[in-house]
Design a binder for these strands. Structure first.
Lengths: 125, 125
DNA sequence: CTGAATCCCTTTTGATACTG
DNA sequence: CAGTATCAAAAGGGATTCAG
């Protein structure tokens, strides 16, 4: 692409606030899970698919994504309450990318953990 | 892909530790900048291309990436010292993805900020 | 120039309890 | 079920100082 002109990320650029939202592991997982789901998912379903996330962190991730128009939140006023989350058209685009990152992490975890072990090893030498 | 089987991210999965490293805005920017650069970059050059990052945060991001084998760090024992960072083959793969995320964020910042404004607006009503 | 080390404050996170 | 509220613990970030 460039021959010698790396990209510069300006601090005032609005897109930085978007990256700020995306640069969060729970947000990445939510987008990735919804990306691989053919139907909307309920809060508890999402939580089951993202092991280790607390209710609080998941709620916050969902709020941020809803605020940015990347996912939709639908409340069914039943008892007990039923809330469904789905990706929007906008969220589907970025969801594909985050899913690719999650896939890549799975595919290359072995190599990365090996590099990590090598890096950490000399400390005990 | 799936008809009704969303992906599950298990808490014990090693790939989770990889995502933990990637889910950081400075890490995303470093990978993206190196992805768009044809040559290795020095510490100060990187810092110039990622406005707002402090020395401490940049150093930490670079260490994490080096540890995971995603970037290489080369020290030239000159005076003053010269240190160059470059993407590894492994880092190039993920760098393309992070660059896509940064690009997407720029391209869609307008729409996202609009959604954000709409979401925040009712609070003053 | 490229950091490491420190202090200090803010933010995030986890755990727990409670509500419609 | 799907949250909110709260408190304590942990992590993150900025500013500064020092060093090879």
């Amino acid at each position: 692409m460039d021959t010698d002109l790396p990209q510069t990320y300006a601090s005032g650029c609005p897109s930085r606030t978007v990256v700020d939202v995306l640069a969060n592991k729970w947000v990445l997982y939510v987008l990735s899970v919804l990306n691989s789901s053919a139907r909307p998912l309920r809060f508890t379903e999402l939580r089951r698919h993202i092991e280790g996330v607390t209710q609080k962190s998941l709620t916050q991730a969902l709020r941020n994504l809803e605020r940015d128009g990347l996912i939709s939140r639908t409340v069914y006023p039943t008892i007990p309450p039923r809330v469904e989350y789905a990706r929007t058209d906008l969220g589907a685009d970025i969801g594909r990318l985050t899913a690719e990152i999650a896939d890549w992490s799975r595919s290359n975890a072995r190599r990365i953990l090996a590099a990590r072990a090598t890096y950490d090893a000399p400390e005990s030498a």
